[in-house]
Design a protein around this nucleic acid. Structure first.
Lengths: 340, 340
DNA sequence: GTGAAAGCGCTAACAC
DNA sequence: GTGTTAGCGCTTTCAC
């Protein structure tokens, strides 16, 4: 490995000068030129580890997401990456697997590696602990999910609004027995979406004098299997629902599979997914969804983080991005599809 | 930040002892205990940057993939991650975006960060240059795609075999005008799959005295759009094909969309995809695919890399994993689906 | 504008 | 077993 002093010796200057050449210090043009030439010949690349140790900061940011196989998070990751690229930060992607312990390990690594900052989509609203990082003064931005009580910047989506919109849409299309497949208890995104559903359903049921049956709300694990199981349970009820609002994309896939197996396909049973299913274009009937701005979420979070890294002083802020309802065939109405 | 000497002072021992406690050196149990207790109280975490600088090696491996939004690569990444976890290596995921320049930047970062090793699914067979890394003695494993001339370990799939199997299957089901949507020229995976297709088609056509028409082979960009465009071109031919073998999953999605738009759905036009489409279960008709062992590919590559990192001396090796043909409805035969 | 020198936090010889 | 010491490659005062 060629070091800075190898280059210095070969160019007949001091290490300090070489360092200045590579970091924008004042050096006479011809010397700078000579140094650059020699460095190129020797194949010199500054050792970032040494630099980080010396400067006490790195040019790497960590991105911790709960599920790398979920297209929502990969799209978010792209947003982060593209934004980071602009300021020559590189992104280290860590997959916490919805596991708080694993997440904690990655947070510890981020601290130990002296990363410039961290963007985290928390595995749990209650149990994710960001204090170790923010306590050390490391910039942290929460994205998609904000752990309770964490004093960090955040970029969120308007989950409750999305949940309300989805539910109201199902009602407007004539569905009445509308169930909800929610995520794990404690996941803030799921809770908020569920709250939106509950709010609209209660309003509706109050008018008709009814009450929201507890069994209409099921909790899954955000994965395909959880969605399938929840849907199967719903279909097994004495009076199964005629529509379902599923709070994430993967569980929607599972729910659709369960519906297909039971031969009760949309729009006979209405389905709205919170978050787009990948390659939704291939799904038949096409799926009504609450669109999430995944890429923008990542992009915005990275911007916020970069400001903090650059030392911009401003109060903690939470940016909320809007969802939008995409109406397709899976909510055409209870009578549009089925014979009965 | 608490350093090793802070802990040493507080525990009344030398920094070396603290280091030994955290790295498995010989220390009397009671002292070790005291050090650990003090360290916990002070919230001490060893600074990995300093350690890396000192030991000249990191506990981080780089994984460079061409498309983070492709489920094949995320699944591969999971394999790498799970394997790495076993030896306490953390994985840094970098997305080269099928862009050789971007990839080169990440390779440079891997070198500058002194990563323990790198696993790379190369963006290009010809232009990806691994010599900078392997030249510095950094362990490198190529996965899925091996750059020409690189002296590195590799884990590959038997692409040619898969291409042959897919094509032979289409023939056996009665399809005759079988086209192929290949990837970018220069992508080794695509070339090998295409070679498999060509070999089987030539054998078949020789028997019937025919020749493989050049326009039956189209090149796409491995993305959805490329697949759609290629399929549209094929359908516009005077005598369009009655089946198509698509060399990657995303282009298959595009091809299916084009077929649907033209109202010529499988199995009337037979479709085999190389690589599973995510949530294939939702696609109707269900899709025949050449199954890729994505996760195993990652897992195996990580194993190979760890051996090299650990300094195991052995000749360069290439591990080839087998594909398997999954027959579903999209290749039921030219007469099974359509009226004509 | 340039060089000498100190030191970031850690580990690995080496002496005891 | 334990402490002392040197130094990984770099940046950054501080003199000049």
């Amino acid at each position: 490995m060629t070091t800075i002093s190898d280059v210095a010796r070969a160019a007949g200057v001091s290490p300090a000068t070489v360092s200045r050449v590579f970091n924008g210090g004042r050096v006479t043009p011809e010397r700078a030129e000579r140094v650059r030439k020699v460095a190129a010949e020797l194949g010199f690349a500054p050792n970032r580890v040494a630099r980080s140790l010396r400067t006490q900061r790195a040019s790497v940011i960590g991105l911790i997401i709960p599920d790398i196989e979920n297209p929502f998070f990969t799209s978010l990751a792209r947003g982060v990456e593209d934004a980071a690229q602009q300021t020559n930060l590189s992104v280290v992607l860590c997959n916490s697997d919805e596991d708080v312990a694993k997440e904690q390990r990655y947070l510890a690594i981020a601290a130990a590696e002296q990363m410039a900052g961290v963007i985290v989509a928390a595995a749990s609203r209650n149990r994710t602990d960001l204090s170790a990082l923010s306590g050390r003064g490391m910039p942290v931005v929460a994205v998609d999910r904000r752990p309770r009580g964490a004093s960090v910047d955040a970029v969120m989506v308007d989950n409750q609004h999305g949940g309300e919109e989805a539910t109201a849409h199902l009602l407007s299309r004539g569905y009445r027995r509308i169930a909800c497949i929610a995520g794990p208890e404690g996941a803030s995104t799921s809770e908020e979406r569920l709250a939106g559903y509950r709010a609209v359903m209660r309003d509706h049921l109050r008018e008709t004098g009814g009450k929201l049956p507890g069994e209409w709300v099921r909790h899954g694990d955000f994965r395909v299997e959880g969605g399938r199981a929840a849907m199967a349970e719903l279909l097994a009820l004495p009076e199964p629902p005629d529509a379902v609002f599923v709070v994430n994309n993967l569980m929607t896939v599972g729910a659709l599979e369960a519906l297909r197996e039971a031969d009760r396909e949309p729009p006979g049973v209405g389905v709205v997914s919170f978050g787009d299913v990948p390659w939704a274009s291939l799904v038949r009937p096409s799926l009504s969804t609450v669109q999430l701005p995944a890429y923008d979420l990542g992009w915005t979070a990275a911007g916020l983080l970069q400001d903090r890294i650059a030392g911009v002083v401003k109060p903690l802020q939470t940016v909320v991005l809007r969802t939008s309802l995409q109406i397709r065939d899976s909510t055409a109405g209870p009578l549009a599809g089925a014979a009965g």
